[in-house]
Amino acid sequence: MSAQDLSPAAKKTKLDGSANEEKLKKMIEKVKVVLLDIEGTITPITFVHDILFPYIRKHLSDYLDKHWKEAECQQDVEALRQLAAEDTKAGTPGAITIPAASDDSKERKNIIQAVIESVNWLMDADRKVTALKQLQGHMWKDGYVEGALMGQVYEDVVPILEQWKRARKDIYIYSSGSVGAQKLLFGYSTYGDLLYLFSGHFDTKIGMKVEADSYHKIAEEIKCQPEDILFLTDVVREAKPAEEAGLNVALVIRPGNAPLTDEDKQHYSTLTSFDVLQPDNEFMR
């Protein structure tokens, strides 16, 4: 079918698609830095929800028993204890208090049970809090090192990241998952160790992903102007504050991601594969 045979609506879709792709190509050519979300952007959303999160719920009790006397584990528990105290003080419905530290063996069981209930409650509520992410990261480390977990990355991602690196573009990760968890995912991926591709990692310690100030801080941290950064995410609530901060933004559409509204598709550039973000210079590929 030729372009002349297309209906007006089909022609508009075709033109819009071409304009969208052209805009994306211009973005990747002009920016110096690419800032990447993980879940739903470069990693299947099912990996987190169907593999990583269930791993925490299944192994939490054994992990606490095994590592309880270690300083790292106690630091994680104390961070969760303080968070629970803050939630309780704020009157957050469902918050579970974690008893104070104790050397008594019977009280230890009560503390561990409270930690388990608190972690499950935080996960059920999808809380993006550092205390939870910190414990999860330490647990996932055990899983990756033991071979029970391997990081999943979309097949179109790695070749393009390698092209960006050859084109001297810095690549950073910004995820609600802890920096430690990020490094484990990419260090133990199904494609091998991918950490060499990244110039740095950010998590919620820099700020929440739904706040414009977080993106200002990232730009300051990496000594780059916001307009020289391209942020790729699948979440509109993250795209908006990044755009407010002056970053270039594009939304990634992947299987299982939350659907975008027509308004979102009109406002933001979108992509279903990283292939459209190849640098133009052939020798960089």
Rank of each mutant, 00 (worst) to 15 (best):
D170M: 00
P99V: 10
Q225V: 01
K30Q: 15
M284Q: 15
V31D: 02
Q82E: 12
V153C: 03
F202V: 02
L80W: 00
F47A: 06
A239Y: 13
N20H: 14
A212W: 06
H49K: 15
S61A: 13
Y191S: 05
S7Q: 14
E107G: 10
M27E: 13
G137P: 04
V145P: 02
G94K: 07
I160C: 04
A250W: 03
I116H: 06
A125D: 07
H67S: 01
F186W: 03
A90V: 05
I28Y: 02
L149H: 11
V157G: 02
F283C: 07
R108W: 04
D126I: 01
G177T: 04
V158R: 08
D103Q: 11
A95I: 10
E243M: 11
V145T: 14
F202T: 00
K23A: 15
T43D: 01
W68K: 03
I98P: 00
D87K: 09
Q113V: 00
P259V: 05
A148L: 15
L52Y: 12
S105F: 11
A239V: 14
D228F: 00
S7W: 13
I218E: 01
K26M: 13
K106N: 10
Y196G: 08
E243K: 15
A100N: 08
L64Y: 07
K209S: 02
E86R: 11
V236Q: 13
E107H: 15
H59R: 09
I96E: 05
T272M: 14
A95T: 08
R168Y: 12
P259N: 07
L184R: 02
A95K: 06
E238T: 13
L52I: 12
L135Y: 03
S189V: 07
E221R: 05
A242P: 05
R57W: 05
N110F: 06
S199T: 05
S199I: 04
H267G: 04
D62L: 09
D193I: 04
N20P: 11
E78H: 08
L52F: 14
E282L: 14
M139C: 01
S189R: 08
W164G: 01
D62A: 13
